[in-house]
Computed example of a mutant assay.
Amino acid sequence: MGASGLPLLFLGTLLTSALGGCSGDATTTEHTISTALVVQPDSTRAGHDSFAGEVRARYEPDLAFQVGGKVIERLVEVGDRVEKGQPLARIDPRDVRLQLDASRARVAAAKADHDLALSEQKRYQTLLERKVISQSQYDSVSSQLEAAAAQLRQAHADLEVARNQAGYAELHAPRNGVIMSRQVEVGQVVAAGQTVFTLAADGDREVLIHLPENRVNQVSLKQDVKVELWSRPGDHYDGRVREIAPSADPQLRTYAARVAFTSDDVPADLGQSARVFFPQGGTRMSIPLSALTAEEGAPYVWKVNPADQTLVKAPVRVGPYQEDEVPVLAGLEAGDWIVAAGAQLFREGQTVKPVDRRNRQVDFGDGGH
């Protein structure tokens, strides 16, 4: 049964029973049988859950300069299509060029030291052959030559790094795609690795959705779903959950999930709105919200024992609250009878007179009909 307003006749009967119990003596109160409106959990096919999302590119690299500096030119805007290798922005190259010049000077100095050490080594080798110097003197000069050679190799390596950094003053697109966002302006000083643009790479498209904390455990990787595009209402496309964030967003407190399309002919464009449907198998039970109460934070309902029409406290596990009902995930069976309202007026083991919404007494012998 679905949740609805309580009959006025039942409310009058319930209040009369409660007040009557208070006005009598102890013996009368002990044997008073209260009227209780009872219902059975409403069992329906579960259907599906749905979440709104946005069509995104599967690959969305953040683009950044590999060296720091002042941005002097921005060559693209948000929404521009770019090709692989296309320049996107430039930083002031003067500092890196000065570093390149300094590296070249260090190479020249290291080469001069190496040439001098090589000349000395050859001269000392001749003297050694003539027995004019000792072996130790020759070994000392040879060591100096090795040190000079190592310094020359290091200078060449530093020069290559400086050349690379000079090239890093210009940011290029790593692949074809569309500029999704821009984080810097001309004149801004950026650090190495600081995001300048976000690129939506050409290729696969997918839908980004955000799952609330109480639903993320109901979604699994590689789960099959249906996707409906806002631009094509009624058309459903096959999809599959590809990724679920391991932690919640600190501001939204939701978990980002990405749903990939399983076919290549989906007419999905970047930025389009979409809705992802998660089918839920089996059946789902719900009860009136007024039937639910709690003790020390633990929810429960009053279940009627059909054998003697006494009440039994039944702890339940519930899902997200709805406007006038709540889904029951565990603790009840479809054929149970529960008190639909006034839970605070009843106690464990109390005998009640069960009635339905039309104020007719429920006969458990024939199923309550």
Rank of each mutant, 00 (worst) to 15 (best):
A3H: 10
S4Q: 15
P7C: 05
F10I: 01
L19T: 03
L19I: 07
C22R: 12
S23C: 13
D25T: 06
T28M: 12
E30S: 14
D42V: 01
F51D: 07
R58I: 12
Y59V: 11
A64L: 12
K70T: 12
K70L: 14
V71G: 02
E73V: 01
L75M: 11
V78T: 14
D80P: 13
D80G: 03
V82Q: 01
E83T: 15
E83K: 15
G85S: 06
L88P: 06
A89N: 01
I91F: 01
R97N: 12
R97G: 01
Q99P: 01
Q99N: 12
L100Y: 12
A102M: 15
A102K: 07
R104A: 14
R106C: 01
A109R: 04
D115P: 00
L116P: 03
Q121F: 09
R123H: 05
K131N: 15
K131T: 13
I133Q: 02
S140G: 12
S142K: 13
Q144I: 04
L145Y: 14
A148T: 02
Q154F: 14
H156Q: 13
E160C: 00
V161W: 15
N164W: 11
N164K: 02
A166Q: 15
A169T: 02
E170L: 07
H172I: 02
Q183R: 06
E185Q: 15
V190S: 06
A191F: 02
T195M: 05
T198G: 00
L199T: 03
A200K: 00
A200V: 10
R205I: 10
I209G: 09
K226F: 05
L229A: 09
W230D: 15
S231N: 01
G234N: 06
R240P: 07
V241M: 03
E243V: 03
I244F: 00
A245P: 00
P246I: 04
S247A: 15
D249A: 01
T254R: 11
Y255E: 00
A256Q: 13
A257W: 05
R258E: 07
T262G: 08
D264W: 06
V266C: 08
Q272K: 01
V276G: 10
F277K: 04
F277L: 07
F278M: 06
Q280R: 08
G282Q: 11
G282D: 13
M285H: 07
A291P: 04
L292A: 10
E295G: 08
G297F: 00
A298G: 09
P299C: 03
V301A: 07
P306A: 03
A314Y: 04
R317G: 08
R317P: 09
G319S: 13
Y321W: 05
Y321P: 02
D324Y: 03
V328P: 11
L329W: 05
A330N: 06
A330M: 09
E333T: 04
E333Q: 12
A334L: 11
G335I: 11
G342P: 02
K353Q: 13
R358Q: 06
R358H: 15
Q361T: 14
V362R: 05
F364K: 08
D366K: 05
H369F: 10
